[in-house]
Simulated assay, not measured.
Amino acid sequence: MAAVRSKICGITRIEDALVAAHAGADAIGLVFYPPSPRAVSIHQAREIVAALPPFVTVVGLFVNASRCEINETLDAVSLDLLQFHGDETPEQCAGYPRPYIKALRVRPGDDIAAACERYRDARGLLLDAFVEGVPGGTGSAFDWNLVPANLPKPIILAGGLTPENVTTAIEKVRPYGVDVSGGVEQSKGIKSSLRVKAFVEAVRRTN
């Protein structure tokens, strides 16, 4: 099994980005969705990105954003990867000068293999818990048994992950990567350095 990557999402402060980077996280996530308590402004995002050391992937998260809004963000912030976390179609995810991953909120009966084919241009699929009316960041886990083995795209597992359960999640799902936000926070949008380090270390031990 290849080494599982880790992403710390919902970063709002430089100090939290640096904790994630120095702990060994492969990526950080910046939320460009104003209703989220973890949303960042363009100014905040630029400062966070400027402070990062090299080799940390910066992911920009959008929820049903307009093409104009996304392009304006890309013009202003050095993002490496786009994450579409709303109801975006494959056509709405395509056509940007950055690769993308598509988030799916998983429910029983969902055909994840078919979604891999539908979003064939995505670099991977992020699987999150379904909570009615909330696009993500709920802190809820879903039934990991719903994830089929041997999917044709890299899978990033999200939803309710914590330093305490991420090892079990990795052993169960065998994902390409894991994505955490609320599970390493001391309050919404503010990370706990101890929990970030514990999460990344747990992923490394599993590897």
Rank of each mutant, 00 (worst) to 15 (best):
F130E: 04
L125I: 12
D128C: 10
N145W: 09
V131T: 14
V147E: 06
I70R: 11
D80V: 04
N165L: 09
S187E: 12
P108L: 02
Y119S: 13
L125D: 08
V180R: 04
K172I: 06
C93N: 07
Q83W: 09
R98N: 14
A115I: 02
C93E: 03
I155G: 00
G183T: 01
G133M: 09
I70K: 06
I190H: 02
V106R: 02
P175E: 05
Y100E: 01
D80Y: 01
S140N: 14
G133E: 02
L126K: 10
D87C: 07
A114G: 06
C93A: 08
R120S: 15
E185T: 02
L81F: 07
V77L: 07
D75P: 01
L127G: 02
P163I: 13
K191T: 03
V166Y: 05
P175W: 06
R105Q: 14
V178C: 03
V178M: 04
I112D: 10
R118I: 08
V77P: 10
K153W: 08
V134W: 07
K102L: 11
L146A: 08
F130Q: 01
A115T: 08
L81I: 03
E164D: 14
G183F: 11
D143N: 15
G95K: 10
K191S: 03
L104A: 12
R123T: 02
L79M: 11
T89Y: 05
L151V: 07
L127F: 08
E117S: 14
G86S: 01
P163V: 11
Y96G: 00
Q186M: 13
Q83D: 01
G182C: 01
S66Q: 06
E185M: 04
T73C: 13
E88G: 07
E132V: 12
G86Q: 08
L74H: 07
G95L: 11
G137W: 04
D110G: 12
T89P: 12
R105E: 09
G177C: 03
I156S: 03
I155M: 05
N145V: 05
D110V: 13
I101S: 00
L151D: 01
K172M: 08
I155D: 01
G136L: 03
L79F: 15
P135H: 15
P99I: 09
A76R: 14
I112S: 12
G182Q: 00
P99R: 13
A65C: 06
V184W: 05
E69R: 15
T167P: 00
G189M: 03
S66G: 06
G136P: 14
N165R: 12
P135L: 15
R123D: 09
T73E: 05
T138W: 04
D128N: 07
A169F: 09
I70L: 13
E185Y: 03
T73S: 10
I112R: 01
Y176N: 00
F84Q: 02
D87L: 02
C68A: 15
D143F: 11
S140M: 12
Y176L: 02
R98I: 11
S140P: 01
L146H: 10
A149I: 04
K188Q: 12
V131W: 05
E185L: 01
A141R: 10
E171V: 00
R98W: 09
N150A: 14
